[in-house]
Design a protein around this nucleic acid. Structure first.
Lengths: 148, 148
DNA sequence: TAGCTGAGTTCGAAAAACGAACGCAAGGGA
DNA sequence: TCCCTTGCGTTCGTTTTTCGAACTCAGCTA
């Protein structure tokens, strides 16, 4: 079993972990959630090599995290990369990373952007909760049961 | 700016994303949360090369996500890798990946393990909420404000 | 007809990962 | 004492990935 095989294990954690654990993929998704949509913009803001950028975008297209959407520019049709519903559902992953970063890796200077709830202006935080009783959970509150 | 530079940006999202976005790191953390603690066990269960495993463990030690804890084996002292408090705080990241995997990448067969709340037996789910009003948030509910 | 622009593709060089063998410290058995 | 074993790495030559500069290509514009 090598790295790529984790992407096909029947485990709902290893599959996403293998997909997003590929180098550049998390940073690429960060950029997507920050609003970047076009090849040239990804390339120049992230300074990623064009061939790897092409590969990562194609993987995310194939996984249906991103989709290509036509737009008009100078009278000609081009395509940009947009999140699908599946892709937008990755938001909690990014927010969990940020919540952790806020707590443990906060830089001296102010962070590069702020997030707040449009409706009430409150802050944003990722958490784990019990679908039964609604309690907030930590790793220690959760029992892991291996399948037969 | 290259990949490593994202780890030192003053951004609380890019730093964790660069750290966990390194190949093998997310899968290694999965294994840690599943209970693996020793070098040989990581190596054999993940089939990662020993040199890369050494490197990733050292990075996580340096970032204080893991710590080395002595234990006794056959009358001699050895060390195992355990999560620090900072490391345990990554739980929501892994659970967010799993919540996404459950929804979008569920395999035909049953998954490899189940999780439930020790106290009430309920399921486990990651979500994003407003620290002000407590509402559950999606990407569309959140306003991004760039810093000056 | 030539130039421009956005979006890739190509390909040789550099970096990272692989993997088999080696090193090493400490305990156990002959 | 000497050798074997175990767990945890390190080394190093080979393979895979990434880099980065140049090239291609389609379609619009001058």
């Amino acid at each position: 079993m090598s790295y790529a095989d984790f992407a096909s294990l029947p485990c709902t954690l290893s599959r996403p972990a293998a997909l997003l654990g590929e180098r550049w993929t998390l940073l690429l998704l960060r950029q997507v959630f920050l609003g970047t949509r076009r090849f040239e913009d990804f390339q120049s803001t992230m300074d990623i090599s064009r061939s790897v950028l092409t590969d990562r975008l194609n993987v995310l297209l194939q996984e249906e995290v991103l989709k290509r959407v036509p737009y008009q520019q100078d009278g000609r049709t081009r395509y940009e990369y947009r999140l699908t519903t599946k892709g937008r559902d990755l938001y909690p992953v990014l927010m969990a990373l940020r919540t952790w970063g806020e707590k443990w890796m906060a830089p001296e200077e102010d962070e590069s952007f702020h997030l707040h709830h449009r409706d009430c202006g409150g802050g944003v935080r990722a958490k784990v909760e019990c679908t039964g009783c609604g309690a907030e959970l930590t790793a220690r509150d959760v029992q892991v049961t291996a399948r037969s």
